[in-house]
Design a protein around this nucleic acid. Structure first.
Length: 177
DNA sequence: AAACGGCAAAATG
DNA sequence: CATTTTGCCGTTT
């Protein structure tokens, strides 16, 4: 690519936002040309958005991905193993973040790891706190299961979308705290 | 360059 | 025990 075209510009390319109705509320999926880039929890404030596309008239690839995303999210919310995901576009993440997110994806449903274990898993055993930051920056919660990371002392730790969600998600997979 | 976190281990009472 | 301090590290401003 021409060097005067910044990569930042590239990643600000247009996104399509599509609602995902679930029993737990209306989530919003964000798509780029490369795949799913984000998942928003139900907020009650999505009405203000003008950018939400009707699930009817979507570009064919997005339509396919969205079908998968809907199934995957409902599956995950039911605490079951997600069979197949749409392609994830994590290009907005830093190297460190994408490594952490990769490690998160290896945590099976119904199990947990600690922030320290994740840090070790990405070969940065001392970057424990930074792992917390990377979890918080996870653009696709639930499908990238940052809720399965707990403190070393057994406490919940934090959750950007609110601890209530972290509890709900863990409870639905049968994790006891 | 400094401040800020979804943390952890050690020190302290 | 519960709380505070101290060390750490990637990100953000």
């Amino acid at each position: 690519m021409p060097s005067h075209v910044s990569q930042k510009n590239e990643m600000n390319a247009k996104r399509i936002i599509v609602p995902i109705p679930t029993g737990a509320g209306l989530f919003l999926a964000h798509y780029s040309a490369r795949g799913l880039t984000g998942l928003e929890f139900p907020s009650g404030k999505y009405l203000r958005r003008m950018v939400v596309a009707k699930s009817g008239s979507l570009p064919p690839p997005v339509c396919r991905w969205h079908r998968l995303a809907v199934l995957a999210l409902r599956c995950a919310l039911a605490g079951k193993v997600v069979v197949d995901l749409p392609p994830l576009d994590l290009s907005a993440g830093t190297l460190f973040q994408t490594r952490v997110w990769g490690a998160l994806r290896n945590i099976p449903p119904g199990t947990t790891m600690t922030y320290a274990q994740i840090a070790a898993a990405v070969s940065k055993p001392k970057a424990v706190r930074a792992v917390g930051g990377a979890c918080g920056a996870n653009p696709i919660p639930i499908l990238i299961p940052c809720h399965r990371v707990l403190r070393t002392n057994g406490q919940l730790g934090g959750f950007t979308a609110g601890l209530k969600w972290k509890r709900i998600l863990l409870e639905r997979e049968g994790v006891v705290i």
